[in-house]
Write a protein that binds this DNA or RNA. Structure first.
Length: 803
RNA sequence: GCCGGGGUGGCGGAAUGGCAGACGCUACGGACUUAAAAUCCGUUGGGCUACGCGCCCGUGAGGGUUCGAGUCCCUCCCCCGGCACCA
């Protein structure tokens, strides 16, 4: 038997799969469908990383299994190709980003193909392709039409040295990722998407989907729903009032002052009445200069200034209370103003202590002179007029009702989720398809003129003002208004990388359609995605954004259901051999090309699936790779001991059924490591028996095929079996036959194993007991003891309690 | 601080409340070889031992429930991830 030549075999089958279009997905809408999706990569200049194939292999296993089970499977791949590294490289080298992108994509595609994934390459999508981003722009225009895209002054991260606006992910520890200079905030007029309008549905509809729990929890926390009430406080001697959001309206009698954010507009409106305006202005200035980083570092120590000349009225008791400005109150959450209840809120307590403000106890149970009492379960209301004696929950309901009757407040739900900052002042992104006309305002580019392409330029350097590099390309900027025909200017901001990835899974269903983002029939058939696997790092941004876009398109009647992904799972990272994150600077990067060249794609795939718990991080081990290679070599050698036979042999029958069950279930449950371990155990068993018959090896090869597709196809052919392996059916198991008739169980005395007996699975207790008592070791252990109790769990244990 | 997920051999990791350490790696011993690599066979949690009998200890720590706990309950420690003045 010739040694297994993985190089020749892998190349051979990859060519067959490609030439015969084995994994090409047909829009045959009569078959049951299965849509498997993995996050498409950003094609960086670094090439594929050994972490990429982990999720790709996992869903390739599932996709291949589903095909063998008779499903019409869609398992596509594409490129999330807009992005900063490419743009930065273009600035350095003066090479057009599109050229760099194409080069990188070619390299990625080649690397992925060498791993033998069953992607349908005819459906490849590329977010930077105008034929693709035409539809990204189209979706944006729909959002704009429905009032979900709006322009607003927003602070951005600004690096004064690079003169560039930075995305949040480019800010590392408060500094610029590229030069390390401290990042400032700069207010810019930005396009925003009103994702908050979908907050409630984004939370509630998590109940409709099968996501791993940690993903659901993280999304819920990120959206941050909280119930409470808006309460209106009049400002004395003015027509103005302050509305606050509170989750503790029950503590209203304990509100002894108010705090507003430094950016609160009332300060501007009432500046005539403020007697210490210079102090306020100075504080505002100081708060504005603080970077996000500083603000979080200084989070402990409270600062603030009293607004003199203004007093608020507590609506429940008419008390006059002071108003303060402090940056611990954020303009971006709630109303930018709070009622301070120092007795029952830690932040307010700290602030009150520092500035000597009154603290009133309104919920009994703690000692508010020592610390804020925040328990809402056990306290009783005191010093609270008509609320006295009630528990917190009842008081909340009662005061909320009272406020509503008095017209002083109403129940309110608030979210931590903010609207999505959608503008980037960059070149390498989808142009926002709007023009600004003096007369008509913001006007959408007509649909038939889409896509708005990026102009050809030679210089991608950003401007001094933080505007997009596009702003300098006057011939591109200057245009005519589609509405009035007058002079207008194009929007020069581009979209963030999250735009193209928010709907790519829809495009895969019908990727070459030039009439719509995809045909109605294709969307109705393929959506929702049946199984989407991706990184935890995308839980709060990509996953939420794409759910938002999908819901929006659902409302427009474009996609068939409310949720894009039926099931979401997540993989762990692959670390370097030294247990640290793989990176060039740490010098611990493993290149998949080297692994494929030395051990082959099947070994690479097998190892990545066997390496450990799929959901956890795990260090790479070159020795582990070799172990997987050895396993495949031993599988290859099975061909030397194949005997005829069209049914499982008595020696292996139970083991076969057990393994089919185990592997079938474990592939579905992300337990690839234990599925492979079961196949290894079976192989050991076969070698112990010394032979394998045709029925057995057929099943074995099909079970292994999703993980190691090349070697198993080759063996199938060499053994002269009919057709190709990928045309076969997934083996089934018979529950009855998984049960071993005779089994060895442990015998315990007082919970300690003292011996073993071999019993028939159907043996009654008396028969088992006979065998127990015949056992020498047990006899010895029982010598001189009195049996108190006996527990027999058939197939498990025989336990004797003695005194 | 809050919310998740975890602590099991030298390593990656297995274990519906029922013989802890499956499977793989490493290491060691043996076979084959002039030799090495590869391959094959064996051993591999710690300790004791009248070393092929058999005993004790052992799943982060301490308690508890149970005939029986890695698994369930309580208290605590440590590690990883996310959020972080969210009213």
């Amino acid at each position: 038997m010739a040694r297994y030549n993985f190089r020749a075999v892998e190349k051979k089958w990859q060519e067959i799969w490609e030439n015969e279009e084995i994994f090409k997905t047909r829009n045959d809408f009569t078959k049951p469908k299965f849509y498997a999706l993995v996050e498409f990569p950003y094609p960086s200049g670094e090439g594929l990383h050994v972490g990429h194939p982990r999720p790709y292999t996992a869903l390739d296993v599932v996709a291949r299994k589903r095909r063998l089970e008779g499903y019409n499977v869609l398992y596509p791949m594409g490129w999330d190709a807009f992005g900063l590294p490419t743009e930065n490289y273009a600035i350095q080298t003066k090479i057009h980003p599109a050229v760099i992108t194409e080069r990188n994509i070619n390299r990625f595609r080649e690397q992925l193909k060498s791993l033998g994934f069953s992607f349908d390459w005819s459906r490849e999508v590329n977010t930077t392709d105008p034929a693709y981003f035409k539809w990204t722009q189209w979706i944006f225009l729909k959002l704009f039409e429905k009032g979900l895209a709006y322009k607003k002054e927003m602070p951005i991260n600004w690096c004064p040295r690079c003169k560039i606006g930075l995305a949040n992910e480019e800010v590392v520890d408060g500094g610029c990722e590229r030069c390390g200079h401290e990042v400032e905030t700069k207010v810019k007029n930005q396009w925003m998407l009103k994702i908050t309008a979908y907050a409630e549905r984004l939370i509630n509809d998590l109940d409709l989907v099968d996501y791993i729990e940690r993903v659901k929890i993280q999304q819920r926390n990120w959206i941050g729903r909280s119930e409470g009430a808006d309460v209106t406080f009049k400002i004395k001697d003015t027509e103005e009032s302050l509305v606050v959001f509170t989750t503790r309206p029950d503590t209203l009698f304990g509100a002894t002052y108010m705090v507003i954010s430094p950016e609160h507009p009332v300060l501007e409106r009432l500046k005539e009445r403020i007697t210490n305006l210079p102090d306020i202005t100075a504080y505002q200035e100081q708060a504005r200069r603080k970077s996000e980083f500083e603000r979080s570092q200084l989070a402990r120590e409270k600062t603030g200034v009293q607004v003199e000349g203004l007093k608020a009225i507590n609506p429940v008791n008419g008390e006059e209370i002071s108003i303060w400005v402090s940056d611990y109150v954020l303009m971006s959450y709630g109303t930018g103003a709070i009622m301070a209840v120092p007795g029952h809120d830690e932040r307010d307590w700290e602030f009150a202590k520092k500035f000597g403000l009154p603290i009133i106890e309104v919920v009994a149970g703690g000692d508010v002179t020592e610390q804020a009492y925040t328990d809402t379960e056990t306290g009783t209301m005191v010093n609270s007029g008509f609320l006295n004696g009630l528990d917190v929950q009842t008081a909340k309901a009662k005061i909320t009702e009272w406020l509503r009757e008095q017209g002083l407040g109403e129940p309110k739900v608030n979210y931590k989720l903010r609207d999505w900052v959608f503008s980037r002042q960059r070149y390498w992104g989808e142009p926002i398809p709007l023009v600004h006309c003096e007369k008509c305002g913001w006007v959408p580019v007509p649909e038939e003129e889409l896509p708005v392409r990026l102009p050809q330029v030679t210089n991608y350097e950003p401007t001094d003002t933080g505007e997009s590099p596009l702003a300098k390309i006057r011939h591109w900027v200057e245009t005519t208004c589609p509405k009035c025909g007058g002079y207008a200017e194009r929007e020069t901001d581009t979209m963030p990388q999250w735009a193209g990835s928010s709907w790519y899974f829809m495009r895969y269903t019908d990727p070459h359609n030039d009439q719509a983002l995809a045909s109605k029939e294709a969307l109705n058939y393929w959506l929702p995605v049946d199984w989407y696997n991706g990184g935890m790092e995308h839980t709060t941004l990509h996953l939420l954004y794409s759910r938002f876009w999908h819901k929006f398109l659902y409302d427009l009647g474009i996609v068939p259901g409310p949720e894009p992904y039926s099931k979401r799972t997540s993989h762990g990272m692959i670390l370097g051999e030294n247990n640290e994150k793989m990176s060039k600077s740490r010098g611990n990067v493993v290149n998949p090309d080297d692994v494929v060249a030395e051990y082959g794609a099947d070994t690479m795939r097998l190892y990545e699936m066997f390496i450990g718990d799929f959901e956890k991080s795990v260090p790479w081990s070159t020795d582990g790779v070799r172990g997987c290679k050895r396993f495949l070599d031993r599988v290859w050698k099975l061909m030397e001991v194949v005997k005829p036979g069209d049914a499982y042999s008595p020696e292996l029958e139970a083991k076969m059924h057990q393994t089919i069950k185990k592997v079938s279930q474990d592939y579905e449950g992300l337990k690839f490591n234990t599925a492979i371990a079961a196949l290894m155990t079976l192989l050991n068993e076969i070698n112990h028996v010394g032979s394998i018959n045709e029925a057995e090896i057929k099943a074995f090869l099909i079970l292994l095929n999703p993980v190691a597709p090349h070697i198993t196809e080759e063996m199938w052919e060499k053994l002269g079996f009919e057709g190709m392996l990928n045309e076969q059916s997934w083996p089934t198991w018979d529950e009855e036959k998984t049960i071993e008739q005779t089994i060895e169980i442990g015998v315990q005395i007082n919970g300690k194993v003292r011996g073993t007996i071999t019993v028939n699975i159907n043996d009654p207790q008396e028969a088992a007991k006979e065998k127990v008592m015949a056992n020498e070791a047990i006899q010895k252990a029982l010598d001189g003891k009195t049996i108190v109790k006996e527990i027999y769990v058939p197939g498990r244990i025989y336990n004797i309690v003695v005194k």
